[in-house]
Simulated scan of single mutants.
Amino acid sequence: MLDDLLRQQDGVLTLEQARRAGLSLQAVQRRLRSGHWLRCARGVYFVNDRVFTDAARIRSAVWGYGERAVASGMAAAFWHDLTQFAPDVVDVTMPRTGHGRRHAETRLRRRDLDPADVRILRGVRVTAPALTILEAAITRPGGAKLMDRPLQRNIELRELWRAQLRNRGRYGSPAARLLLQAAADNARSVAERLLVKLLRAAGITGWKANHPVAGYHVDVGFPEVKIAIETDGWAFHSDADAFQIDRKRQNAIALSGWQVLRFTWLDLTEYPERVIAEIRRAISVREQSVSDR
């Protein structure tokens, strides 16, 4: 029974679990004195005959705060397989009335979570997927991509908004709200504004916003070199009809002699230097082509 438990729990167990498996307090203490078991926190142990993995580290960190503690932030994102990278510091959320001091290599926040925002996954209490995405997305560069990927697969935008409204006032709530607004139906217009802002900041000139080309208006056009830049919202907004309309539009613009560059909201927010570099390169190539004629 004990071996099965340790295999399921990454080599981590609590004193209560050890007792239920038939070990007395004295037997636990003997294992600790011999070094076969290591104490991770009060009443939480690791059996020192295996590798102390990231999963073991997160499990022991959460259990070290007691049965009401919940893994949150990037620790919860790792536990939900939303990211393959475990954080160096484990975020743990406890009720406001919870007891216990902060442990090393953890970040403790005290907040009462709605039951809808808590799941038990592989024996560990973690924030539910929607709240996990909101909290993790604002903690590191590339967080928007972390939000976009689940939206393309199995999370609906309204679930994120509900989790946001249930947890107003928490740390990072304003930043998460901005991401949700950008992920809404006006994402394309937000992307257009970001593109204009990037062009101005980079000192690139010769462009016109909403420039007419081949019967359409492109987001940004460079008339002298015939470069059209189109922006897109987040990937999960694309449906079959929108895809077909965009391709018809893009083909018409290209057939009129214009080069089309497309950038997504994520490109503009996460990789702005790359966007500007590609635009500069396209302008340079088109200018060289014109001079060679």
Rank of each mutant, 00 (worst) to 15 (best):
D81T: 14
L82M: 13
T83H: 15
T83P: 14
Q84F: 11
A86F: 09
V92W: 01
R96M: 12
T97Y: 09
H103D: 11
H103R: 14
R107K: 14
L108Q: 12
L108V: 15
L108P: 11
D117K: 08
R119E: 13
R119D: 14
I120M: 08
L121P: 04
V124E: 10
V124M: 09
V126P: 10
P129T: 10
T132K: 07
L134Q: 03
E135H: 10
A136L: 05
A137Q: 13
I138F: 04
P141N: 04
G142E: 09
G142R: 06
G143I: 06
R149T: 05
P150E: 08
P150N: 09
L151T: 07
Q152T: 11
Q152I: 02
R153L: 10
R153H: 12
N154D: 14
I155M: 09
L157H: 07
R158Y: 08
R162E: 06
A163T: 04
Q164C: 07
R168C: 02
R170Q: 01
Y171H: 12
Y171I: 12
S173E: 12
S173V: 05
P174S: 03
A175R: 05
L179T: 00
L179S: 01
N186G: 11
S189M: 03
S189I: 08
S189F: 08
A191L: 00
R193T: 01
L195Y: 02
L195E: 03
K197S: 10
R200A: 00
A202E: 14
I204R: 06
I204H: 06
K208M: 07
N210K: 07
H211I: 02
A214Q: 02
G215M: 01
G215P: 04
H217N: 13
H217W: 04
H217F: 14
